[in-house]
Design a protein around this nucleic acid. Structure first.
Lengths: 255, 255
DNA sequence: AAATCGACTTTGTCGGATAAACCGACAGGC
DNA sequence: GCCTGTCGGTTTATCCGACAAAGTCGATTT
């Protein structure tokens, strides 16, 4: 058989072109975040297509986070939320059956860099927020709540790093870690205290603006997680279980 | 007025619930990638809603990459593509007006970790692919094509790292780097040769399975980029220009 | 000025319709 | 046997029209 000489010839569906047209105006700066987009009827008029078609196009943008509806359901331009993006990335990783080893290795890199940057740039306010989280966490006995607080701590630290690229890159890894930490805590008694100790040292490193120490403690912290994972009898080379993904889907993934 | 004591009580629109229902089956493993989803008429029957509603729900999943249509336009479950996710993340970063400094810092971390892992795990085949890219790149004079080949090299190296979490985390950074490299090459004559030299050393480090050297050269490589950037007269603390995002949107962001 | 009310607007969902594209099968020509 | 043209049945993309619920907004009342 002949090799492929020609591209597939497929006209772009109208609803996609509607979405692209609006997206281009947003990316091009003609529409700023916060700007209102017309009503569906307006778009029908402007694009000269049916309302159903407009609505399908809007769904695409809405799902991509570029536009949103306020409580009155009117459309306006919006900034995609990190949260949503991170959720999608996490889900994709799970569906691609990445292993814990991959996640762990990435966490080692990303969390360490985050901690380093955070230590370099933490303000007094930042440190207060971290302290606050630590205090709250120390008082929690419920494992689930503890894990969520831990997750918050790392997200907070990423915020403190003042590097939004790192912050966003780290987020999916954090989402995948949290449910496993719960599992570890259920089986390894020392996990909680060690966790708190690491956080304490991380805050201390931030306070003294000591990136090297922050990095060091974070690496220890992540290494601890791995040890706990193995003690709990899990293999690093197993793909992440689907059950962890269910936790990622709901609720309001499309809100 | 009282502060908000209760959540806003809003029923989830039907089209979202359609999307969530299908998504749950996918995340729960009841639907595997490759499985066909019924026709729209089937879904209409199963969910007991109107076809327009089904279609709006389908758009959400389609845009999220969880389902796709083959050339016959029938629906089937699919794995979200890295490419698409990375594009969305990059766009979000641009819209959030992250600075080059943030991107650069993240690249330093991510690319270095990627190179390290790649050097540790490269097979003979991997190295051949990298060599191939290098040879091709050495023969290119057009700046645009050169930059694209450079982008391919880094993507390839990430593939070689055999860590899909790192690979995916790195991708958006790569997308943001590429257009700036073009700009640098247009103004700094030495950029091309230095680029090639770094790639050559990285391949060499992969061949001798020397992660430390790979890391080192990658850091130098990224540092070079920064120097070029500054020589070209740009400030690291400026937000990434929107024009770079236009390059990210098209074409077929929704295909 | 604040609360209230009613007309108007907009969205979410629905039922139905048409043209075009796709698929599979089948017949005829080489 | 392989290729091509044709035909009917499916499925999708788009359109039209309609209606109830929820939101908006200005006029009215307190």
């Amino acid at each position: 058989m002949e090799p492929n000489r020609f591209e597939r010839l497929a006209p772009t569906p109208t609803y996609q072109r509607v979405a692209e047209a609006i997206e281009n105006d947003i990316l091009g700066g003609k529409l700023q975040p916060g700007d209102r987009i017309g009503t569906e009827a307006d778009l029908v008029r402007q694009f000269g297509v049916n309302r159903s078609t407009v609505r399908e196009g809007i769904r695409l943008l809405e799902q991509g986070g570029l536009i949103r509806r306020d409580q009155s359901r009117r459309l306006y331009v919006s900034l995609p939320r990190y949260n949503r993006l991170a959720t999608r990335v996490s889900r994709a990783l799970v569906l691609h059956q990445v292993t814990f080893r991959e996640v762990w290795e990435a966490a080692m890199t990303l969390e360490a860099a985050t901690a380093e940057a955070a230590a370099a740039r933490a303000t007094a306010e930042d440190i207060a927020a971290l302290e606050d989280n630590l205090a709250r966490m120390a008082g929690i006995t419920d494992h689930q709540a503890f894990c969520e607080a831990d997750s918050d701590f790392h997200a907070l630290l990423a915020r403190v790093s003042k590097n939004r690229v790192l912050e966003l890159a780290r987020e999916p890894v954090g989402l995948l870690f949290t449910p496993t930490l719960k599992m570890i805590m259920d089986q390894v008694a020392s996990a909680g205290p060690r966790n708190l100790e690491a956080h304490r040292h991380l805050i201390e490193a931030c306070r003294s603006h000591d990136p090297a120490t922050a990095r060091d403690w974070m690496r220890r912290h992540i290494a601890d997680w791995r040890r706990g994972f193995e003690i709990a009898g899990k293999s690093l080379d197993d793909p992440i279980e689907r059950t962890f993904a269910a936790h990622l889907g709901l609720p309001g993934a499309y809100r």
